[in-house]
Design a protein around this nucleic acid. Structure first.
Lengths: 122, 122
DNA sequence: AATAAAATTAGAATTATTCTAAATCAAAGA
DNA sequence: TCTTTGATTTAGAATAATTCTAATTTTATT
């Protein structure tokens, strides 16, 4: 694992937000002026392939990266804000129910966040 | 609802696959030579905002469109193939568990499909 | 028919991401 | 230590998906 890969992983683990490649790039730059966005994409792709990071894709937003601990997500339909929510792990239940050798799953719950509920904008 | 919107909705309902904007565009063209891709995007955005279609985004693939009947998806980690699976509706359970006024949810199950399991390519 | 509003077109622009080729770096053996 | 080989990174072009803008067309309304 290269220096950059290690740092990127650390950035993802340290953040409670869900960072895009661009945001990770900006943070990585802070202690490695020279890096280039493509390097971040390269490393993220490799970390993802190794199963060391999780990728969250939501319509209308760039992919965001997250740690791999099993947890679910709340996503605001209005502003796109993504937050973590810890629900019971469904993997086994789903395996039984479907009979399919499931690797993992991704549960995204749509709602309208507090902020957007108050600021009745739409 | 305009002619185009109606047709697009019909195309989505008629298809058992999960079509991208591009694919919908190609089908719409069959009986409306003049249409342009932007029109398809416009209409899809409006149908989506009205809650008449569902949008499925998966990393590495263009957004795909689906009918809004509550159902879940299997997605092959290898080839990206998307298929429907009907599991119990969790909306109420999630509302109780979280106390959050949930609009809907999106459960995507990752696995390796038959084809990819046989053709041990990776 | 005249006006207003909405939808569509055409094509440029933007965003996110990937690719290519050259340059650099790192590890391993002579 | 020098050299080779392979992996990583850089720089920047290329691509893919989607959005935007402005002009035009269509549709509905007076």
């Amino acid at each position: 694992m290269t220096e950059n890969a290690k740092r990127i992983l650390k950035i993802i683990h340290a953040s409670s937000e869900h960072l895009s490649a661009e945001q990770i790039f900006l943070r990585l730059k802070e202690d490695n002026q020279g890096v280039v966005l493509a390097t971040v994409y390269n490393n993220l792709a490799s970390l993802y392939k190794q199963g060391l990071v999780r990728k969250i894709s939501a319509e209308g937003y760039p992919d965001r990266y997250d740690n791999i601990r099993q947890h679910d997500h709340l996503i605001c339909k209005n502003c796109g804000k993504l937050s973590d929510i810890q629900l019971e792990d469904l993997t086994e239940k789903l395996r039984e129910q479907t009979g399919i050798p499931i690797l993992s799953y991704d549960l995204k719950i749509h709602y309208i966040c507090e902020d957007c509920r108050n600021t009745q904008s739409s």
